[in-house]
Computed example of a mutant assay.
Amino acid sequence: MSHVVFVLVPGVHLLDLAGPAQVFSMAGDFGQPYRLSYVADQEEVCSAQGLPLAAHTQWPELNADDLVVVPGWRASTLRGGPELSRSVLERLRAHHTAGGAVASVCAGAEALGRAGLLDGRRCTTHHHLQDELAARHPRAIVVRDVLFTTDDRVVTSAGIASGIDLALHLLAVRHGPALAAQVARDMVVYARRNGHEPQASAMLRHRSHLDDAVHRAQDLIDARFAEPLPLAYVAASVGVSERTLTRMFHRATGGLTPLRYQQTLRVERAEHLIGHGTTVEAAAREVGFQDVRMLRRLRSRAPSEATG
């Protein structure tokens, strides 16, 4: 049994903590039990969502097989985050020096940075905090717009839910991808994502507008992007003409047509499948391309061309 220790700071985000904790807890249901502990500088920590959390003030004995995780916390800037005690930073450094792994979710990367563990290493954090992390820790190699990074037993992940991806990745590395897939399935996680996948999927990147009709059209395309969706059908579903929908869609999404949006979703899903070992031909069929050459053409385009 391995030990996973979560370091709790005031204002900790519940999902930053609960997502990875759930992953490691459920691993025991498939024969790989983990012991979970929660430590802090005080016996009770209030989460960002107002739920008080109990913690131990004494750290357990750890060895090189164990993992220390720093979940993120609520703060508009890293500078404005909670105080991190010297003892916590020393513990993080000591565990890594002894051969152990340390990990962070979202703003938790700041703790690793203050401990000196990001110097010369690849790392990431929430996309809103990446520039500040790079400025505060200039020796760190901040990788932008990825879900997680691993570098010399230092593992960092992006915002909130990406902590689940990080934990599933660590299970896959240690116990094989089958266990990670079993845990993901039981957690009803849509798919185990690779670290290099973007933090914001196409379903999120083009949703910052306020046009209800376009949102309804996107809802339909999101749910059925692998199916043939004639423009006339999509337009009728949201109660506008084809020409009106095209014009509204183009304006709301920054230049996309409904077809281009559908193709973007297909290519993004195909890239995910290929990254997990699916052949290009099988991925093309899975996402609805009748001709694999169309997928190859779209993949070969520059990002701005493939999605514009």
Rank of each mutant, 00 (worst) to 15 (best):
L170H: 02
A135Y: 13
S104L: 04
A181N: 10
A172W: 06
V189A: 09
L92V: 10
G163C: 07
V142H: 05
V88Q: 07
S85I: 06
G116V: 02
T57P: 05
H56M: 03
H169Q: 09
G100C: 11
T97H: 09
W59Q: 02
R153G: 08
L112S: 05
R93E: 11
P60I: 05
T77Q: 14
L67A: 00
V142M: 12
E83C: 12
E83K: 15
G81H: 00
D152N: 13
R139A: 14
T149M: 09
R91M: 09
G108T: 00
I141A: 06
R114Q: 14
H126D: 08
H175I: 10
G120M: 15
V69Y: 00
R153I: 03
D66W: 10
H95L: 08
I141D: 04
R185Y: 13
P71Y: 00
E132A: 07
G120R: 14
L62G: 05
A98H: 07
H175S: 09
W59N: 07
L168D: 01
A181M: 02
R93C: 08
P138I: 07
H127R: 15
G108I: 01
E83W: 11
W73N: 03
A161H: 05
L78W: 03
G159P: 01
T150G: 15
A94M: 08
P82R: 03
E132G: 06
F148I: 06
P71D: 02
V88D: 02
T57L: 03
G120T: 11
Q182K: 12
R121K: 15
V68Q: 01
S76Q: 15
L166P: 12
